[in-house]
Design a protein around this nucleic acid. Structure first.
Lengths: 206, 206
DNA sequence: TGGCGATTTGACCATCTGGTAGAAATTGCG
DNA sequence: CGCAATTTCTACCAGATGGTCAAATCGCCA
């Protein structure tokens, strides 16, 4: 019988194992992609046997779906926090820093997302065209108001948001390339933090 | 005996089939990643039987390797063309446009590359730390000279190059997300072309 | 401590996948 | 045309993979 339902409450063991499985799956899926990952691989990282893992999540798809479901919120939270009442430049710069910080702290989540999009977003297209588009349109409207009021430079708001995504996620998704090109003795994220601050301050100045 | 070697020259059939295989493999690999793609899939797209395909390329790895080998040059050419003797801002802006044009024309190549990097660049790490780093260091030195001479804004040259890559490739690799968020009635690449022109002109102004 | 549901396991299965063997068909060239 | 080299196809294989199942073990608490 599947875990966590009807008469019995969630046990300590359930919580521990589900957590272990999701952590392991994130590690493996984000590195090899969905079809490139195997249940044996995930089970080994999680420290469980394959049948035992399947006792908690009925299928490979179920594990992947659970990961993706939790992802979009983490993804959108920093943008939600952009305050229409705040100082325009300060708000946008703060968003850039938050987004970069998330790239630094959660590179595996970033890569999982990137993998999904690269493959045509078969499992989250609905969320992209729904929830995501809605939030972006809302915030883009705020940016447009700021631009019209002359408080930031007049830039296409959607593309301004895209540019923040592109620049911050690049440091997570293309980490190995960044490090390979920079060579030894660099802290990519620290440098990026300073660089992006400069970049957007200059770009946004009216 | 493998195709194209010793006593016999490359035949018309060889050229046609190798081309068909590589085109099909690019399509499939760039969509599903290496491990997510199957030989049957590629063979079907190429219009050949699997054994026939393996007659031209001995293994799945061989096909993939051939694709990657050709990739880096296409990738670096636009940067090579950056002329140290030219006008700084014009040269950099031209590079941005070239890179975006390549994203538009060769999105599959871009995604193939992104897939490889996302998975830790196991097959092209050497090229990244060698050929790529070398070229980037060389051009970064040029950017630094321009900055020191006050002809462009003083920005960390490596990160300036990264920002060009991130912004242009985003429109190829995250195409589905961009289109989902923009909705109907947009030409992402045309808009990006104008936006990035504005962005870098503003950023580079001393 | 006995009992019962929750958890874990080993053995197993059907399918898929990369790759091979060798015969048959086709091609190109003197 | 005649024939050797090239190209293609059918049949097949061994290993990997996602998933199942019945039996064994664990852990909680009445």
């Amino acid at each position: 019988m599947a875990a966590g339902q009807q008469k019995t409450r969630t046990t300590r063991i359930q919580a521990r194992n589900r957590e272990a499985i999701l952590t392991a799956a994130l590690e493996v899926f984000s590195t090899f992609g969905f079809r490139g990952s195997t249940l044996d691989q995930i089970a080994e990282v999680a420290g469980l046997s394959k049948p035992n893992m399947l006792y908690y999540f009925g299928s490979k798809d179920a594990i992947h779906a659970e990961l993706l479901a939790g992802l979009l919120d983490t993804w959108l939270d920093p943008l939600r926090a952009l305050d229409p009442e705040g100082d325009p430049v300060a708000e946008i710069i703060a968003y850039v820093h938050r987004k970069l910080e998330i790239s630094r702290l959660y590179p595996r989540e970033s890569r999982l997302f990137a993998n999904e999009i690269l493959q045509g977003a078969p499992r989250i297209m609905a969320a992209l065209a729904g929830e995501l588009k809605e939030l972006v349109d809302e915030k883009a409207a705020v940016l447009k108001l700021w631009a019209d009021a002359g408080r930031i430079a007049p830039l296409p708001p959607h593309h301004l948001i895209f540019s923040i995504w592109a620049l911050t996620q690049h440091y997570a998704d293309f980490d190995v390339q960044v490090r390979a090109v920079l060579g030894e003795g660099h802290d990519p994220f620290a440098e990026a933090d300073a660089f992006l601050d400069t970049l957007f301050r200059k770009l946004l100045a009216p």
